[in-house]
Amino acid sequence: MRRLIIVLATFAAGATGVGFTTHWLLTNEPDRNGVVVGATESIGGDGGRKAAVTGAKARPLDAPGLRRAVRAYVGQRPGKAGVMATDLRTGLSFGENEAGDFVSASVMKVDILASLLLQRQRERPGVGTGIGLSAGERELAGQMIRESDNSAADALYSKAGNSSGVEKSNKRLGLTDTTPYPMSWGSSWTSPADQVRLLTTLVSERSPLAAPGRGYVLGLMGSVLDEQAWGVSAAARPGEKVALKNGWTPVYHQGHGWAVNSVGRITGGGHDFLVAVCSGGSPTMEAGVATVEHVADQVVGALRAAGP
């Protein structure tokens, strides 16, 4: 696949609510029944840092304008999409269809690994600074995240207790929209908001997952194969660091077309973005990638423009 050099779009500032701490997401989005609701929702952490600015210092995010722009783009694309993004440095967040249901494909592999690490942490409290995985399991984890190897994911999903084991771990991780599928992990359902919750557990000192495990998962996500370094990386500027995991699969029994998803973290230049873009119903993988990358760039670009 490809890496893109990004031209970021700047959205006009408007009068919207600002000054969220890094612990809160602002939503004013349609729920699953199409009803527009407004609420604040804790995502449970700040990645060990305080927000760099407060409401008095940050320029406002034109959330309505951004929402219209995202909806206009997705509306003329095949299939559907949803996005959730937050900047831990400024506390600004944005979601569009962030609670929508999407087939997880291989982004589920991050959840599998986090669940297994959390289980080992509880089973072996004397592990100390280690991660509780055997050498063979570490090799499988590297193949699963860096190479997106499905056989490795099958093996680790089994070790994590398949759907029931991962579901129990997800309750501790604070996930609410992810439904692990029995045996076939790639058929699990998830949402962009839940993927950002999962990313938050990987960066927050308040996470139930200890620091060695968090660093281990992010390290693997930061070293995926070059041909898989697409997706949310399209929103990164030169010199910024990206840790990501992508998922893509044709869908036959849970819809049609391709499910193409990308989740990850972009750090540098005074920003720390957690981003998840999910899509479904694209006629080809390439079409899904284009949708995911454009939406990631569009939303992260707006959050950048609204920063200090």
Rank of each mutant, 00 (worst) to 15 (best):
L88H: 05
L173F: 06
D46H: 04
A141Q: 02
V295I: 15
Q195G: 02
A152D: 07
L220P: 04
P208V: 03
G45Q: 01
G126Q: 10
S106W: 04
W189A: 03
G136H: 00
G55S: 12
K159D: 07
Q195F: 02
A296I: 10
V103E: 04
E98R: 07
K109W: 08
N33C: 03
G215C: 06
P60D: 05
N33D: 14
H294I: 10
D154F: 10
M144W: 06
G264W: 00
P238W: 00
L4T: 10
G17A: 10
V203H: 09
L198D: 05
V277Y: 10
A259N: 09
C278N: 13
A152F: 07
L92V: 11
N261P: 10
G219T: 14
V224C: 08
G269F: 09
V275I: 14
S106I: 06
A153S: 08
G239V: 04
Q228H: 15
L198A: 07
G17W: 14
S188C: 00
S158W: 03
A235L: 04
A85V: 14
L117V: 06
M144Y: 10
A302P: 07
A259E: 06
A39L: 14
V127I: 13
S282F: 13
L116E: 08
P192C: 08
V224Q: 09
A152Y: 08
I266A: 11
W230R: 00
S115D: 12
M108Y: 07
L244I: 08
R68E: 14
Q298M: 15
D226S: 15
F11T: 12
W248R: 03
A302N: 05
Q76P: 11
A210Q: 06
T90I: 12
S204C: 01
M108W: 04
A99T: 15
L8M: 13
A51M: 11
G95C: 12
A105G: 11
A236H: 03
D272K: 02
L133H: 00
G95Y: 08
W189N: 06
P30H: 10
S184K: 10
D149C: 05
